[in-house]
């Protein structure tokens, strides 16, 4: 199963007021099952566009995407998305938000009791069983993001797509959610694609880091294998020369090879 997710020569061209805009050009990427891949690059380079292609929210102008040997056409629950701004429905409780997803995927085949158990199990997985009845406006930003992760996981997706999931959080909350995500990924053996602009986050979490060149017509610049042993501990890694070497490779890519043009600040 080396080619669980295949992205073959994918390009994305948007029609804008000022003519055509090529966001992505000739993206080739293969992922194996259970792999954690980060997409990193300067903002505007098309990382989220690439993620949206996998999510099915956008269709590639050229090329093809395959998941478990089936072509990706449109969004579907076998690809769980965690949005940057959590996107919880404010009129549903945490439980209600997760249950909506569970009901959609398993509602036809399973009993109501089983659906309830699934929703609660997903909330428990992110440590929020106690907040099940709360509404999104009653909980913190970090908790909302965890509910978003629970919602995506509850669908038992083939691949989990995270779009800068911790970008809007403070550093301490982000660190604890990263640890939690590592635990969840270990426990569930999930296949994950994560968009990030945080170098430490990418190195800490990923098996491979895919670095995108600056747009327009962004493509894959380099792919870095992160061969640090798991489970990883952020304190131990801080003193690990291997970690720093990887980190400086990503930094070199971002700030030397792909230095941002000054105008696009």
């Amino acid at each position: 199963m080396h080619h669980y997710l295949q992205i073959e020569n994918a390009s994305m061209v948007f029609d804008t007021k000022n003519g055509k805009f090529t966001a992505l050009a000739g993206i080739d990427l293969h992922m194996r099952q259970g792999e954690f891949v980060s997409l990193i690059g300067h903002s505007g380079c098309g990382k989220s566009t690439l993620l949206n292609l996998v999510a099915g929210l956008n269709e590639p102008t050229e090329g093809v995407l395959l998941l478990a040997e089936k072509e990706i056409k449109g969004p579907g629950p076998e690809r769980g998305v965690v949005f940057q701004n959590h996107s919880l429905l404010p009129w549903l409780s945490c439980y209600g938000n997760v249950h909506l997803a569970v009901e959609r995927v398993f509602g036809a085949s399973e009993s109501k009791r089983r659906l309830r158990e699934r929703a609660m199990a997903a909330l428990e997985l992110v440590g929020l069983a106690h907040a099940a009845h709360k509404h999104p406006h009653e909980i913190s930003g970090g908790m909302k993001q965890r509910v978003g992760i629970a919602r995506a996981l509850a669908m038992e997706p083939k691949v989990l797509l995270l779009d800068e999931p911790f970008g809007a959080l403070d550093a301490l909350t982000r660190a604890s959610l990263q640890d939690e995500l590592m635990r969840i990924v270990r426990d569930t053996a999930a296949t994950v694609i994560m968009v990030t602009h945080d170098v430490d986050e990418a190195v800490l979490l990923s098996d491979r880091i895919v670095m995108l060149t600056n747009g327009p017509a962004a493509t894959i610049g380099e792919i870095l294998e992160v061969d640090l042993p798991r489970p990883r501990d952020r304190l131990q890694l801080a003193e690990d020369p291997g970690y720093h070497h990887l980190r400086s490779q990503v930094l070199a890519f971002l700030y030397q090879k792909q230095r941002r043009p000054a105008k696009a600040a």
Partner: peptide, 9 residues
């Protein structure tokens, strides 16, 4: 790719 540990509940 995702399985749950229901005993946690």
């Amino acid at each position: 790719a995702v399985t749950f540990h229901e005993d946690r509940l």
